[in-house]
C-alpha cells in the first residue's frame, strides 16, 4: 500500500510540475507558486508520514478535539445518546 501511495504522490507532483510550474514561472506568478508549493509540501509530508506509518506529524484532527468539552456539555444537556 505504501509504495502505491508514494506512486500517487509522485504522480501528483509530476502533474503539478508539468501543468503549473512552467506556466506560473512564465507568467511571473512567484507568489502563487510559493503558496502552492507550501500546500504541496504539507500534503507530501503527511503523505510520506502516512505511507511509512511513522506518525511523527501532529494529527490535524487534534485541532477539532479542542471543542470536545463544548460538545460533551451539549450532548449532556440535550440528552444525546450516540
Amino acid at each position: 500500500m505504501s509504495s502505491l501511495l508514494i506512486c500517487f504522490l509522485l504522480l501528483l507532483i509530476s502533474l503539478f510540475a508539468v501543468l503549473e510550474v512552467r506556466r506560473s514561472l512564465k507568467n511571473r506568478e512567484f507568489k502563487e507558486i510559493i503558496i502552492a508549493s507550501l500546500f504541496l509540501l504539507l500534503g507530501l509530508s503527511y503523505g510520506i508520514d502516512y505511507a511509512m506509518d511513522w506518525k511523527v506529524l501532529p494529527n490535524p484532527s487534534s485541532v477539532i478535539t479542542i471543542v470536545k468539552p463544548v460538545s460533551q456539555a451539549f450532548d449532556r444537556f440535550f440528552e444525546v445518546n450516540k
Binding site: L12, I35, L44, Y46
Partner: peptide, 21 residues
Amino acid sequence: LKNFRVLILPIGLCLAILTPY
C-alpha cells in the same frame, strides 16, 4: 493571489492525504 488554478492540485493532495490521516 492572482488566480486559483495553481492551487488545485496542492489543495487536492492535502485533501486526499489528510482525509485517511
